[in-house]
């Protein structure tokens, strides 16, 4: 039985009701019910194949649920184009074009989000400075290290100043410095609602205020990060395979 908490941080921005998603005969999600309030920083944890990425892809409208309804920013079964400019996504895949420069990547995505020319130039300058790539702004992304690409990917994800940021294992392949910079960037704007898939329990407890623990396509625990039982629940799911860490 899922332990459900609803924090009272702000407006409800996401409501998922009985979300099922099947891939052929494989049931990836088995009736997810979830409410997300504005300003929450939620970690989704669980073993491989628990349905975490599928759930995030549904929130990003990259895939549709087989059954169930999803309401984002008050838009039922979200009319994609109306809410897309309020959602950003950062993944372990960079979503960047290798043959374009850092600035060209940001400008390209900025244009797709409909940002006006002058505002876009200013926004790109601001973000490139912020992620520490000012000197490499005109270099093609293919010459960047993994950490630099991930920082640029973060800038791309927030180029349109989204209200909801979806993060799918954003720390994959980052060294300690890059990881720490990413952490600072994530914590910078607390007003932005963040939902992050991570395999790092320590990071989840340090950064997030709510944990969704998933197993076999279900949310088995929905707990506050300060809940005394939270770590026990998380470890029970992640270490449930005879003490072998499954995440």
């Amino acid at each position: 039985m899922a332990t459900i908490i609803y924090s009272m941080m702000g407006e409800t921005i996401l409501v998922a009701e009985d979300i099922f998603r099947d891939y052929g005969c494989l049931h990836a999600l088995n009736g997810i019910n979830l409410r997300v309030e504005e300003g929450e920083f939620i970690a989704i944890i669980g073993p491989n194949g628990a349905g975490k990425s599928t759930l995030l892809k549904i929130f990003a409208s990259l895939i549709s649920p087989t059954e169930g309804t999803l309401q984002i920013f008050g838009t039922k079964d979200h009319d994609r184009e109306d809410v897309q400019d309020r959602i950003g996504m950062l993944s372990h895949e960079t979503f960047l074009y290798e043959n374009l420069t850092a600035r060209e990547n940001l400008v390209f995505f900025g244009k797709l989000y409909g940002i006006e020319h002058t505002a876009l130039d200013e926004r790109c300058d601001y973000l490139i400075r912020k992620i520490g790539l000012w000197k490499r702004a005109e270099d093609p992304v293919k010459n960047f290290s993994r950490g630099m690409k991930q920082r640029l990917s973060f800038a791309r994800a927030i180029i349109h100043d989204p209200s909801l940021l979806l993060l799918d294992e954003p720390y994959t392949g980052l060294d300690m410095n890059a990881s720490s910079l990413m952490e600072n960037l994530l914590l910078e704007n607390p007003a932005v609602t963040k939902i992050m898939i991570t395999h790092d329990l320590d990071k989840a407890f340090r950064l997030c205020n709510r944990l969704l623990i998933m197993e076999d396509g279900n949310i088995v625990h929905d707990v506050g990060a300060n809940d005394p039982n939270a770590r026990k629940f998380a470890e029970a799911v992640c270490f449930s395979d005879g003490g072998q860490f499954k995440c």
Binding site: Q84, M89, E93, L112, Y113, G114
Partner: peptide, 18 residues
């Protein structure tokens, strides 16, 4: 091919364009 590399197609699909 350029859209498949680094999953750029997902980024395009998330943009507010038809």
């Amino acid at each position: 091919a350029t859209e498949v590399q680094n999953s750029c197609m997902d980024a395009l699909k998330m943009c507010p364009i038809p």
